[in-house]
């Protein structure tokens, strides 16, 4: 599969789980905070954003990995940016074709996937040094980890901010929405609470 001798321990379970858990982009690396805080007012928005990012991440990592031995190092960043921008444009068209209201809810943050540091980071740090299959598995893990992070925030904010989850009412019509949760400060509060929970769990497992 790889003609040159690369550092390749093959694809392990950890290749996938790295992004989902150990190096979770939202909770551990705290990367891509712009969409994380901005679009997570509802679970649907969060999952759509996560899937859009996942798609861009996996496709660009695949392409970057395929051409990794062709690209001269001087122009590699420029090449990666062109590739990422292409897939972001694709996602932009696809979301418009699927649902315009979703497109309006996500706003400029679809186009801003292009500057999401997770994607360029993965392309540079992983995909450019690993064979396509491994790169894809790793990118898939990262994308799923990002989606899980967004979903955690989006679900919390939708439950408290609107009394709903995925649009289904949970508490009946007399629910009092916590308006702050759908406003920007709510994003910071909820992200802070999740980060607190994660570091608490990690420090606990470290002491045991």
């Amino acid at each position: 599969m790889n003609p040159k001798k690369e550092i390749d321990e093959g694809i392990t379970f950890d290749t996938f789980m790295e992004g989902v858990w150990r190096q979770n982009p939202v909770f551990v690396m705290v990367l891509g905070m712009c969409p994380t805080l901005a679009v997570t007012v509802s679970a649907v928005n969060a999952v759509s954003m996560g899937i859009a990012t996942l798609f861009v991440l996996v496709s660009s990592c695949l392409l970057v990995s395929l051409i990794r031995n062709l690209v001269p190092k001087e122009v590699r960043i420029a090449t990666y940016i062109v590739i990422i921008a292409t897939f972001v444009t694709l996602v932009d068209y696809i979301i418009q074709a699927v649902s315009l209201s979703l497109y309006e809810a996500l706003g400029a943050f679809i186009q801003l996937i292009v500057v999401n540091c997770i994607i360029l980071g993965r392309a540079e740090a992983h995909a450019s040094k690993n064979p396509p299959l491994k790169a894809v598995v790793n990118a898939l893990g990262m994308g799923i980890g990002f989606t899980i992070g967004l979903l955690a925030l989006g679900a919390t904010r939708e439950i408290l901010g609107a009394g709903k989850l995925f649009g289904f009412s949970l508490f009946g019509e007399h629910f009092q929405p916590w308006v702050v949760m759908v406003l920007p400060p709510g994003g910071f509060f909820v992200l802070g609470a999740w980060l607190l929970l994660f570091s608490f769990m990690r420090s606990r497992s470290a002491t045991e």
Binding site: Q176, W178, V179, V180, M181, L183, P185
Partner: peptide, 10 residues
């Protein structure tokens, strides 16, 4: 400030 932002009506 938190409840002011969360429950502006109440």
């Amino acid at each position: 400030a938190f409840v002011q932002a969360a429950f502006p009506v109440a």
